[in-house]
Amino acid sequence: MSNVTEKTTVNLLGKEANLHQQVLASFPLCDVTEDDLTQNPRFCKLLVLLAQHMDRTGLTASLKAELEKTEQNLQSQRRQWLRTEVLHRGLQEMIQDHHCFRRPVNKTTPDLQFHETMEKCLLVAQCVRQLDPSSATNEEQPFVFGLTEVDRFGFSQDVQRMRRALPKQLENHLRQKCLHLLSYYQPECETESEGLKTVKLSHLSALLDKEKTRAESLRGTCRENAVLLQRQSQVYLCELMKCIQLLQTLILDHRLKIQTDLDRSKLDYLEGKCELVLQKLKAETVEVQLDTYTPDSISAHRKIREKLEAELKACRAEKQAAELKLTSFEILGKEFKALADEYCRLRSEIENKKWALAELTHVKS
């Protein structure tokens, strides 16, 4: 039975080679990669079965039908509310325009009476709506505080005249707003005739719906691109981490060997350079000697050097023997030191007297 289910699942979404791509396409908002599906085949099969009962947004067929029905009802209620709200705001804008432009002399008395009556009617309607505690809207509903139609509208004749003139005034006002919207949407139509503006105005709603549809399509495309970009970013980060690990392996495994070879090459280079410098110094020394001394003087200097080195060697030997004798004398103690000092003094006097006697003999002769 399980094998039959698996075959049916594969046949529903295509061949096994394209199964992962189709699962990802069926759940675009799910943060799952192709590697996750490959490592978890049972989870992949579960997603395939869920794709038969759910759409791309994660809703079931029954829930989606209820949602569509609710949205249609909501749209109907919204249209009714918008229709009433547009009329109400249109009347308020007419009153605002009247207050803003009431000072010019071109405002006639009937026009002033019309706007004042309309303003009073809106004010009374607003009071009724705010003070009425009930939720009924039929005409049999009792008036606020027991007021009658006559009590509320003592200016009934003005109200009748206002109601007769209101549709045309409201139509003109809405037409002007539509023309302003058309001028904003298509600034090039400012210089066109009224007939052409009317024709374009009749197509304005279709153009706006088209632009709205296009904007929603672009918004959906942006969401899909964002999901795709996030998925690609994750794949890129995974590949980047693999590359970093590979680089670390190369560094740790091969750096010491390469560094040893590099140090050996550098050492050979420095040894060769040092040898070359020594040879150059020797050559410079020989060249300086040849430029400074003749072969005879060099030979004489060598003999003098040999003689001086021999005398230096003899002096060093004599110094060493004297140091040995001095060390043996120091072993005898302080009493022998006094005798040695006295002996040195006597030797010095003897030498001085010999020198004086020799000088005296030399003078007499």
Results as ranks from 00 to 15, higher is better:
311 E>A: 06
325 K>N: 10
325 K>R: 14
282 K>T: 05
292 T>M: 02
317 A>C: 05
217 S>R: 15
317 A>F: 04
219 R>Q: 13
232 Q>E: 05
314 A>L: 11
310 A>H: 12
324 L>N: 04
302 R>Y: 12
307 K>E: 14
251 I>E: 12
322 A>W: 09
300 A>T: 13
248 Q>W: 03
255 R>Y: 13
321 A>F: 03
269 Y>G: 04
233 S>M: 11
298 I>P: 01
311 E>H: 06
211 E>Y: 06
310 A>Q: 13
295 P>D: 01
192 E>I: 01
322 A>S: 12
311 E>L: 07
224 E>L: 13
323 E>Q: 10
324 L>K: 10
330 E>G: 03
269 Y>N: 04
235 V>P: 00
228 L>F: 05
314 A>Q: 13
254 H>S: 09
290 L>M: 09
197 K>R: 06
254 H>E: 09
303 K>L: 12
228 L>E: 05
297 S>A: 13
219 R>I: 07
210 K>Y: 15
314 A>S: 11
198 T>C: 07
327 T>L: 08
319 K>C: 09
274 C>F: 11
307 K>V: 15
193 S>L: 00
313 K>F: 13
260 T>I: 07
279 Q>D: 01
224 E>T: 06
232 Q>C: 02
322 A>H: 10
274 C>V: 09
327 T>C: 06
196 L>G: 01
194 E>S: 04
281 L>Q: 08
296 D>Y: 09
263 D>Y: 07
213 T>F: 14
306 E>C: 13
251 I>C: 12
229 L>N: 02
277 V>Y: 05
283 A>D: 08
205 S>I: 15
191 T>C: 04
330 E>P: 00
221 T>S: 15
207 L>I: 15
274 C>D: 02
254 H>D: 08
330 E>R: 03
304 I>Q: 12
250 L>Y: 04
253 D>P: 01
245 Q>I: 05
327 T>Y: 04
191 T>E: 08
204 L>N: 00
288 V>C: 03
326 L>E: 02
276 L>R: 03
192 E>G: 01
